[in-house]
Nucleic acid binder design. Structure first.
Lengths: 229, 229
DNA sequence: GCAAATTGTCACAACATTGTCACACGAATC
DNA sequence: GATTCGTGTGACAATGTTGTGACAATTTGC
């Protein structure tokens, strides 16, 4: 699976390339609009990761322009990379044909997960396997929706539990506001904190059975939750 | 049966060699175009597995070129290994004389099955291994559409049951989403989960008669099924 | 064309998952 | 100390999934 990464920050681009290669993709880099279009014309990529803040040139100024340009000729999935959490920008991005966006700063894991999600949505093709998450003796296999601790018998998670844990472990060590978790797990629409509390409770029952083992999901009162804090 | 494996990724090449050796073949490796042509000139191989993405050299750039080159002098079966799912590339590959292609990522089992299929198609006389699938004391012969367990009398499978079991055992130990199974068994068009449930049920009746024997087809609720998980 | 085998459809029970409510408990505030 | 707030927890209802039997529709072999 080929992925085209377009970002003028070479360090970041390299990092992304490394992460994608580890996840079984074949990354190709471009550092500006011209480079991006050139790679795109040359070889068929399966997905594009695009920084919206690129140094301008005459005809193609930023990521939005590239996105628009590509959409004229192809429906390859595009993920926008942006520091702006301005809703207007996100809406604009999605309107001109981007498939998803991701806000900086983000972890490489997160990006990989996002890419896989978009690909899974876009095509029935076989997407590289999702690697299991680890934290100390704790292990979570999102493909099987299975958690295990040490050598114990694995526990099965439900759809929502698995989504929650994915999000938590993807942002391991970070403080995650309840609202963010909710929109991530349930989607943009309905869902209240009560449902989240319940879900956290049920997840904890499955992964924190042993009283002597350390707490995995920590409550940050008034804010939200965090994994491995 | 000699098989020539051409891939610059040595780890992958080794893995493939191992899989092919297990399946009763005699693997020979080459890591670039020169090596491939050298092995090909030196000894008569029965089939070639060729990565299309090889590091370039002057006269022989990639797998396509090697394929073309070989076709000038021999009609040995060639299977292309590619990450591109671009139809154009596949058509191109088949046009210049490849016998089949397989998209990354794939399981070694899958490749072996593909190799056997190509060989069976190519040469009606020197049929290679008639390779039944095995799992513990369970055995499945896709050619005869017959399953047996231990020394018991074999059971006959129907066409769809056989296809389903082939797909499951080909991807043994993996999580297979219901949608993937459906498109694999029935084809792209119609078919709903109800039909899959029914088919799984019927297949189970034939291969899981004994209550003491372990479950072969595991249900992964909300996801799909998996064989030997 | 007919009978048998195969495949698709429907109905329903058993079970699992998710949403909702009620309430207990502890910390912070007054 | 009483109140308020946020959180954890149990119970239960609503909903969704899966397994299973019966039967109709279709295909296959003769």
């Amino acid at each position: 699976m080929k992925v085209l990464i377009v970002d003028d920050d070479r360090t970041l681009a390299d990092l992304l390339a490394f992460a994608m290669r580890r996840a079984g993709f074949e990354p190709h880099l471009a550092f500006d609009a011209q480079g991006a279009m050139q790679v795109f014309d040359d070889l068929p990529v399966d997905i594009i990761i695009l920084d919206v803040n690129l140094p301008g040139s005459q005809e193609l100024k930023n990521g939005f322009d590239i996105c628009r340009e590509i959409r004229k000729v192809s429906d390859v999935p595009i993920i926008l990379l942006t520091v702006r959490d301005d809703e207007e920008d996100i809406v604009k991005g999605l309107n001109i044909g981007a498939d998803d966006y991701i806000l900086k700063p983000f972890s490489p894991r997160q990006l990989v997960a996002r890419v896989q999600a978009v690909l899974r949505r876009a095509s029935a093709e076989s997407v590289p396997e999702e690697a299991p998450y680890r934290y100390q003796d704790f292990q979570f296999d999102p493909a099987r929706r299975e958690v295990s601790r040490g050598g114990e018998t694995p526990q099965n998670l439900t759809r929502l539990e698995s989504r929650l844990l994915s999000y938590l472990m993807l942002n391991q060590g970070q403080v995650l506001p309840a609202d963010n978790i909710i929109t991530e797990v349930w989607g943009l629409d309905a869902a209240n904190t009560e449902m989240l509390r319940q879900l956290v409770h049920r997840l904890r029952m499955k992964i924190e059975q042993d009283p002597e083992n350390p707490i995995l999901i920590k409550t940050l009162p008034g804010i939200g939750y965090g994994f491995g804090i």
